[in-house]
Amino acid sequence: MRSFYWLAGRSIFGEADLRIAGWRMQAENLNTLDAIRDLTPDAPILVDHETVDAAVWRWLNGVRAARLRRWALVVGIGDGHERARLLRRGFGDIGDLAMTLPELHARALRITQQAEALVRWRQHGPLRLDLIERDAFVGDKAVGLHPREFAVLWRLMESPGETVGKRELLRDVWNLSFVPETNSVAVHTSRLRSKLAMAGLPGWIQTASGGGYQLIERADMDASVLNNIHIGISLT
């Protein structure tokens, strides 16, 4: 049975209630920062834009919620420009005020399918990651990454321009729920930086002022690099 979460300041209502379409609601009381921060999503999160807590909504739009936004289906956005902005921000889908239950069902199913699908490539300017090859490529030239270096870069490329903290990297790459007495993250990130620099992409991984790392945004890419490197594959 498909399941979903309900994130709102009120009980679920008619056209938003996927239970009518055979889904199971996992949790209803997520409308607090503590609850949403601790959530590891495995199902669509229906967000009632009208009643969601303001602090929760700000957090959802922030740098630490990039992974969670992929699962979020925001209900009740009437303005097309705002829907477009939220989609660019990385939300899974956005529905307007007139969305019916069959449409909501289809959109929630689509979010689930997209989140569960295995993505082979990630592309960021001239830099391409290949999950099957477990390596990065600049044009047709392999960078030659160690598996952990590849995993760090894959995680950073998930949300370019957003800071990924050491704790998040330890959780997502090393599968650790605590911060050990080790500088492994710094060592692997340093090696990754060096290899990207040798491939013609110096400075593409930045250290954030409060700790953590981020992949530069597209607007910050060196124009000369983009003009001089042949991109061997074009992804849409």
Score class of each variant (00 low, 15 high):
Ser3Tyr: 02
Phe4Thr: 02
Tyr5Leu: 08
Trp6Asp: 02
Leu7Lys: 07
Gly9Pro: 11
Phe13Ile: 13
Gly14Asn: 12
Gly14Tyr: 11
Glu15Trp: 10
Asp17Leu: 10
Asp17Met: 11
Leu18Asn: 01
Leu18Lys: 00
Ala21His: 01
Ala21Gln: 14
Gly22Pro: 11
Asp34Ala: 15
Ile36Ala: 01
Thr40Trp: 03
Asp42Ser: 14
Pro44Glu: 02
Leu46Lys: 08
Asp48Gly: 09
Thr51Cys: 03
Ala54Gln: 10
Ala55Gln: 15
Leu60Gln: 01
Val63Gln: 13
Arg67Lys: 14
Leu68His: 03
Leu68Phe: 03
Ala72Leu: 09
Val74Leu: 11
Ile77Cys: 08
Asp79Met: 04
Glu82Gly: 00
Arg89Lys: 14
Asp93Lys: 07
Asp93Met: 09
Ala98Arg: 15
Leu101Ile: 09
Leu104Pro: 01
His105Arg: 14
His105Pro: 00
Ala108Thr: 06
Ala108Gln: 01
Ala108Val: 08
Arg110Asp: 13
Ile111Met: 01
Gln114His: 08
Ala117Ile: 01
Leu118His: 11
Arg120Gly: 04
Arg122Thr: 15
Gly125Glu: 02
Pro126Thr: 04
Arg128Lys: 04
Arg128Ser: 08
Asp130Cys: 10
Ile132Ser: 11
Ile132Thr: 15
Glu133Asn: 07
Ala136Val: 08
Val138Cys: 07
Gly139Leu: 07
Leu145Asp: 09
Pro147Gln: 07
Pro147Ile: 08
Ala151Thr: 09
Ala151Gln: 12
Met157Ser: 06
Met157Gln: 11
Met157Trp: 13
Glu158Gly: 15
Thr163Ile: 15
Lys166Trp: 02
Asp172Met: 06
Trp174Tyr: 14
Ser177Thr: 15
Phe178Asn: 08
Pro180Arg: 05
Thr182Met: 08
Asn183Phe: 05
Val185Gln: 02
Arg191His: 13
Lys195Ile: 07
Ala197Trp: 03
Ala199His: 04
Leu201Met: 09
Ala208Met: 09
Gln214Ile: 06
Ile216Gln: 13
Asp220Ser: 14
Asp220Cys: 03
Ser224Phe: 14
Leu226Ile: 13
His230Trp: 10
Gly232Val: 12
Gly232Trp: 11
